[in-house]
Design a protein around this nucleic acid. Structure first.
Lengths: 240, 240
DNA sequence: GCCGATTTGTCCGTATGTATC
DNA sequence: CGATACATACGGACAAATCGG
């Protein structure tokens, strides 16, 4: 992304994360930023809007833009935004491994259609993968990809990153993802594939992913052992 | 909020939710919308940006703006994502009751400060509340309000809605909320106050809330019995 | 309490780039 | 290639909130 507003957003975000603009400090005014980045008022505003939406700053009308970001702890496996397991792994440096348990072609039955939102009869690629950190099975991912959108998935691709393959090789762009987080009791299959010990509940993320065309291309269930699960989120007030 | 872009956003959202623009359909082009709403290109774009961020539509470059919203399925969940307990209760008509267990003034110790982000020595109002549905204790809410921002909380207020009190009586506006969802083992206190049976894990939402000034005014831990917990979310891909 | 300077919030009109068909 | 539609960017104008004198 080479858009000006995005470059500016990243630049300021960097300054906040490194502490150049500390918690509770005010950023330079929009006028100053406009001069500093040599761009228009609107472009600065767009960058500031991103910072606000991502929970970095809180603009205060008539006063300035206050920093509300503080360094999060990096202890557990955090989920947020749309990032693939591989990206999260790279970010946290936990050295995770992926084992492909299932890789098969299926056709959406009425029941699958109801659960996932795929039209009945759609050809789907079904994948089950176990994510291991330090040899321990922590996460069970169960994906259903629309085969016509993401064809030719091999075990090798499934073991590395389906997202990379889809984005780079096929030119598919992931755009929007709808998720629900629930906590469910572990079932037989979970015990079989994960290292649960006496743990009998899992954090479950169920998500639907749409591509840049607005077409549903993937449904996923990601079942996490609770002691390595953390979901972070920033919500901005809905003005009523 | 009477901003034009917000009115337009709500108008189009309404049309989507009622099915006037069905799933997978394209909205009228920006030019047509500009004419229809008699406003500028930028204002329409801002409204469309909101619709995109909230997961209603997916703009497709060079083609149009596609609807990706579908009526959420009514399954087993009770407590939804962004809404407060009271709002969720009103929506689901479950007839929930709130019992105030604790209401006291405390001062932030170093440990509390570390856990919550309040400055050491800050005067805080500590509240513990149990949310019951059908007599069953399902949720334990533990709040720490900055007393100077939200003074004079009575048991009556705690039983109904601190949020209403803060907004209406005190003019405090909640602006940004940072949340983390984890799954934790139930502790003694949870068993004491909630009806857990043989359940020994809880869904825990830990949140920090900032007012319109960017000041931290509240930290909350909301501990949910997992069989009545669901968190919903829509994420937009960060283009890299 | 009022006024003026500063700062953010909203909106407009226009121009240009880029993707789709 | 041209027409259409979304994406980005600019510059200007005015409103609204804050703060200090």
């Amino acid at each position: 992304m080479k858009a000006r507003y995005d470059v500016i957003y990243r630049d300021i975000r960097e300054s906040i994360e490194t502490g150049a603009y500390p918690y509770q400090a005010f950023l330079p005014s929009e006028a100053e930023l406009t001069a500093a980045f040599e761009c228009s008022h609107n472009t600065i505003r767009r960058a500031l809007g991103l910072l606000r939406d991502q929970g970095y700053v809180q603009p205060v009308h008539g006063k300035g833009v206050r920093v509300i970001y503080r360094e999060p702890e990096r202890t557990t496996f955090t989920v947020g935004g749309i990032e693939s397991f591989r990206e999260a792994d790279a970010r946290t440096h936990l050295g995770a491994q992926t084992e492909v348990v299932t890789l098969e072609q299926i056709v959406a039955t009425p029941e699958v259609s109801f659960d996932t939102g795929f039209e009945e009869g759609t050809e789907l690629t079904h994948i089950e993968r176990v994510r291991r950190v330090g040899g321990e099975g922590l996460i069970l991912d169960r994906n259903l990809f629309r085969t016509s959108a993401v064809p030719g998935i091999t075990e090798e691709i499934a073991r590395t990153s389906v997202y990379d393959y889809a984005e780079r090789e096929l030119g598919v762009t992931i755009a929007t993802s709808k998720r629900a987080i629930t906590v469910e009791r572990a079932v037989e299959r979970d015990r079989e594939l994960l290292d649960l010990g006496d743990i009998d509940y899992l954090a479950v993320i169920t998500s639907q992913t749409f591509d840049a065309q607005g077409i549903l291309i993937e449904c996923t269930q990601s079942r996490h052992r609770p002691d390595h699960f953390c979901f972070r989120d920033t919500a901005v007030r809905q003005r009523v």
